[in-house]
């Protein structure tokens, strides 16, 4: 038998842990918003007729998807100040999560856009709509519907990845837990508890995403 468990330290620290959850949600939701914007905008630049724009997008995607998140966030936090850009830990975390999630979101959303029959675009153009209007008003909703499970899966990943933001001392659940653990040496109890908390947050997000899907994508298809 191991040492006796003592969860009283966790109970004492519960308010701090719950605030940590709030911090995680803040980072995650802000990161998702940024990732979604990058994802949708990136689909347009990824498919741009201008080669430099297209190549820049592909380069961005390749760099983000083939380097560790920890290195990316260190680069933003420790290397960018050398170029005169100084961000606080929260800003760094949101930017890192948004850029990382955005690179994946571009490829996911692009898959959705490609799944929409060409006839949809042609019908829109034939009615006199511009290419931008066709994308925004006709293609985007069915495309997002098609890839919504993949996109929300990526966003849950993004939420869990936010724990790495503790490495730049961003305010979120893992950094709060690390502090409590170093004060109390109750490693098992603290990390056991936040494991459950991450699980709960993922479920809450899944329920939220399902609600969004019901609201936005409730039209019948065949």
């Amino acid at each position: 038998m191991g040492p006796k468990l003592d969860f009283s330290v966790v109970f004492d620290a519960l308010p701090a842990l719950l605030w940590g959850c709030v911090g995680t949600f803040q980072l995650a939701l802000s990161g998702m918003a940024l990732a979604l914007a990058i994802g949708i905008g990136g689909v347009l630049t990824r498919n741009s007729r201008r080669a430099p724009v297209r190549l820049a997008t592909i380069t961005f995607i390749e760099i983000i998807r083939n380097t560790p998140f920890l290195v990316q966030i260190f680069f933003l936090f420790f290397a960018l100040p050398g170029l005169g850009v100084k961000l606080d830990p929260t800003q760094t975390a949101i930017l890192a999560l948004g850029l990382n999630g955005g690179a994946y979101a571009i490829e996911i959303i692009r898959g959705g856009v490609q799944s929409i029959p060409k006839g949809q675009t042609e019908a829109g153009l034939a009615l006199g709509l511009h290419k931008g209007q066709v994308f925004r008003l006709i293609i985007l909703t069915p495309a997002l519907r098609a890839i919504f499970p993949a996109l929300t899966g990526q966003f849950i990943m993004l939420t869990l990845t936010s724990s790495i933001c503790s490495s730049v001392a961003a305010y979120e659940l893992t950094s709060v837990a690390q502090r409590i653990e170093s004060d109390t040496f109750r490693s098992f109890e603290v990390y056991f508890t936040i494991t459950g908390m991450y699980l709960a947050m993922s479920w809450i997000l899944m329920v939220g995403f399902a609600a969004i899907a019901r609201r936005q994508f409730n039209y019948p298809t065949r």
Binding site: G119, Q120, E122, A123, I138, T141, P142, R145, Y219, T221
Partner: peptide
């Protein structure tokens, strides 16, 4: 068009 091409979400 042959394939109607109505917008499914509208």
């Amino acid at each position: 068009f042959q394939s109607f091409n109505l917008f499914p979400h509208l």
